[in-house]
């Protein structure tokens, strides 16, 4: 649904995006993460055929972003960084205008607008002027506009910013529902918990480069190496670390717990439990220490900054 290969965008001598390659199949969500000014919006604008790539190519919903810009935009729903509503218009009137721009017939426009507004809890604001909307309502209406023409690809910039937790939940549920219905999503967000919940793939962009890409698990493994496990027992350790030293290398331990990395958990973990039991101790829990996407993200950015400093690279 979204394919990009070596996309580059330069403004005179400023390199905004360099060699960005992405692949977002139907039914999946890609979260594009990165610091402010990293090139996320430029990438989205290239995928929307608003900006022409300086080099590289991209196909969105089967259309070439350079050669078929109108077709691309007809098949993409875009939530821009700023919702940019016409504040003197009323909600239904606003959606009707965009529906006409997208070529929907009168009945379809009305049906889709009402259905989406109901879904996002805006049914009481149909005839309200947009200038009177709260920030969250504006964001939801902008999202409604993006979904109005039932596009197969959605590019959403900060979809839940300014929303209360309940509204944000509604939006995330909508994304999940649509993704299951074979839509492809590209979401840029600073809300890493949201990205972790929604995204099948994550790409981290910095200074216009994709510095890491893959599933959350892949990225976490890249940072941490082998998964970190935590074993908790009933009672005290009493030198357990030494007794299992031939099986695992303990990284950290406390009164009733120890942590270790394991390359082959399916082999090592059962052997460890057996050993502990043989030593007369009772296992309370054995679980992987889960990292958050935020930790992984910060670590990856930190590594890139360090690498950049070492190379004296001032991109």
């Amino acid at each position: 649904m979204i394919e990009a290969f070596e996309l580059c965008k330069t403004y005179d001598d400023f390199l905004a995006v360099e060699s960005v390659s992405l692949n977002v199949p139907a039914g999946t969500v890609l979260a594009l993460l990165g610091p402010n000014g990293a090139g996320k919006t430029t990438t989205v604008r290239m995928l929307t055929s608003i900006l022409a790539p300086t080099s590289g190519w991209a196909r969105v919903a089967g259309y070439d972003v350079t050669r078929q810009p109108e077709q691309v935009r007809a098949h993409v729903g875009v939530l821009t960084e700023q919702h940019g509503l016409y504040e003197r218009m009323r909600a239904l009137e606003y959606l009707d205008f965009f529906g006409r721009v997208y070529g929907l017939d009168s009945n379809e426009r009305k049906r889709r607008a009402l259905s989406l507004m109901e879904r996002f809890g805006l049914e009481d604001a149909l005839t309200k002027r947009l200038g009177e909307f709260s920030k969250g309502m504006k964001q939801k209406l902008a999202l409604t506009r993006a979904m109005l023409h039932n596009p197969p690809v959605l590019l959403l910039d900060e979809p839940t910013s300014a929303m209360d937790p309940q509204s944000a939940r509604l939006v995330r549920d909508a994304v999940i529902e649509l993704q299951r219905d074979s839509r492809a999503f590209l979401i840029t967000t600073h809300n890493l918990a949201e990205a972790q919940e929604l995204a099948h793939q994550i790409a981290i962009i910095r200074h216009g480069h994709i510095i890491a890409a893959g599933s959350f698990e892949t990225l976490a493994q890249r940072i941490d190496g082998d998964p970190l496990m935590e074993l908790r027992i009933v009672g005290e350790m009493n030198g357990l670390a030494n007794d299992v030293a031939d099986l695992i290398k303990v990284e950290d331990s406390g009164k009733d717990w120890l942590r270790y990395r394991v390359h082959e958990p399916k082999v090592i973990n059962p052997a460890l439990i057996k050993r502990v039991t043989e030593l007369g101790l009772q296992v309370l829990t054995l679980a992987p220490m889960s990292r958050t996407l935020e930790e992984v993200y910060l670590q990856i950015i930190h590594e890139d900054e360090t690498k950049e400093a070492m190379n004296g690279d001032h991109r």
Binding site: A74, R119, N150, E177, D181, R183
Partner: peptide
Amino acid sequence: ATIAEPLNGAG
């Protein structure tokens, strides 16, 4: 209300 409908995109 459901928002997932058969894909047709804009004309």
